[in-house]
């Protein structure tokens, strides 16, 4: 599902919550329930993947000699 790729974790989580609410309401037809269920499982996998895949990233943003923004890895000594 390509739509997911454009979702943020937050949006995916919110969508998943909505699907669970819809399914729990029991007002959907069986066909729609199955569709929603499938979408929900995909979203939960998508969210879990983000949690698993996110890498720790601590960087610094500084302005270099010519006045451009530059991103550098952070080290606790604080040296640029």
């Amino acid at each position: 599902m390509s739509v997911e790729e454009e979702l943020s974790f937050e949006e995916a989580l919110a969508e998943l919550e909505e699907i669970v609410d819809k399914l729990e309401s029991g007002e959907l037809s069986l066909e729609d329930s199955l569709k929603e269920f499938e979408a929900g499982i995909k979203l939960s996998r998508f969210c879990a993947k983000i949690l698993d895949d996110t890498e720790e990233k601590i960087e610094m943003i500084i302005e270099n000699e010519v006045g451009d923004l530059e991103i550098k890895p952070y080290n606790s000594s604080g040296k640029e």
Binding site: E55, K57, E59, I61, E80
Partner: peptide, 9 residues
């Protein structure tokens, strides 16, 4: 553990 932080010194 995987925070994404951008420090502006």
């Amino acid at each position: 553990a995987k925070a994404n932080i951008l420090l502006a010194p």
